[in-house]
Computed example of a mutant assay.
Amino acid sequence: MRNYMKIGVPKEIKDQEFRVGLSPNSVRALCDKGHQVSVETKAGIGSGFTDQEYEQAGAKIVSSAAQAWEQELVVKVKEPLSQEYPYLNTAKILFTYLHLAADKDLTKALLSSQITAIAYETVELSDRRLPLLTPMSIIAGRLSVQFGARYLEKQQGGRGVLLGGIPGVFAGRVVILGGGVVGTEAARIAVGMGAQVQIFDISVERLAYLETLFGSRVELLYSNVSSIETAVPNADLLIGAVLVTGKRAPTLVSRELVSKMRPGSVIVDVAVDQGGCIETLRTTSHSSPTYVEEGVVHFGVPNMPGAVPWTATQALNNSTLPYVLKLANDGLDALEKDASLAKGVNVKDGVLVHPAVQEVFQDLIG
């Protein structure tokens, strides 16, 4: 095997997705190792990176998505959309967020292409941490409250509640389902705004850890049907922050329960890219982010960090670059050398290989 890799960085085409797979600094690190990087023109503009900056870092600017996709290793941010499916037959390795459990059509397209598809969200360390999901989870968690506060404004269709309240008036109530990275960061912002905050989780150990972070400023509750049924109707802002690695999120809030919330309350479900944990939640976009169902404002944008691309691209690259370098240096042999990276493989040689995704799509195992 030759000692360099041809790497492609296409421009993201998801609605208002301004992040980019590699920053100029990451490109320079790859080029310094002798690798060749082709970046689609204007791929980095949304994140504040010009074609000239990429060229100065050593990249070749190409004029079309096809040229970026025909490289051996393609590095993206979001999953390929249907118009990108034909390109899957030209690349050998795809490294990006995939969230296959919620997208059977993409799963089938990857299987038929014979590409090796490695998902950021399933790269897993020995201690079960998800290093490539964490930076975007931090951002999404913080944004969930930022967006929620905005859509609680009357002009945005909300109840007209100020989350922090003022002296003499109750603060808004934020209910967070899930005490992982997203839930923790959502609570951090909500507490900072002065809201009343409840976090629900099924791990007593996690709840104990959260107590060390928040003390009495957050009400920490064990998650069960009864406690959720009591809390949700009183929420001004309900945040879904549930993650089951590689699988669809479980439905924790039924339509009936949503109907008991006060008109103009807001739901933000960060788990939407894994199917969502609230029955009435469906995928929206940055162009059309909300809709009203059962009198409640729903926000279901799956690429929330795309709203802050300058921050998000750099945060993502800080975590992904070491793995991109391993793939560039060693090709698929990197999967033998790095067990964490190997766990990121969802599809390889036309076979669905990730156990959690296999459980969702048993009919595609053959």
Rank of each mutant, 00 (worst) to 15 (best):
E70N: 15
L327C: 07
T283K: 14
G366Q: 15
A119P: 03
M1F: 13
I166F: 11
V204H: 09
V272A: 00
A149H: 11
G172I: 06
L364Q: 07
S203I: 07
A190H: 02
T320F: 04
F49T: 08
A149E: 12
L98W: 05
F214A: 06
G300Y: 04
R129T: 15
V242S: 10
M5I: 01
G215M: 11
T313F: 09
G165Y: 12
R262K: 15
T90V: 06
D51R: 12
G366N: 13
L22R: 10
L210R: 08
A249S: 14
M304T: 13
L152C: 02
Y54V: 04
S254D: 01
V75I: 14
E205L: 10
G180N: 10
A249I: 01
V191G: 01
A334D: 08
V357Y: 01
F170K: 13
R150Q: 15
L177M: 12
C277Y: 12
T251D: 03
A59W: 11
R128V: 00
L237N: 04
L341E: 03
A241P: 01
V357L: 04
Y85H: 12
S112W: 00
P250K: 08
S319A: 15
G160S: 09
A171K: 06
R28I: 01
D338S: 08
N224D: 15
D363H: 14
Q155S: 15
V161G: 01
V191E: 06
D15G: 01
T280W: 09
L163C: 06
A68M: 14
I267F: 01
L327W: 02
H298I: 03
K337R: 15
R206E: 04
K42H: 12
L177I: 14
E219V: 07
V345I: 09
K42V: 06
V225Q: 14
V197F: 03
V27G: 05
G275F: 07
A68G: 11
A190F: 03
R188V: 01
A208R: 15
E279Q: 12
V253T: 02
N346V: 10
L106C: 04
V191A: 02
N303Y: 03
T280Y: 03
L316S: 12
V244L: 14
V123G: 11
A29T: 13
V347D: 05
C31P: 06
L22H: 10
N25D: 13
L238K: 04
V27Q: 04
E185T: 01
E121C: 03
E40V: 12
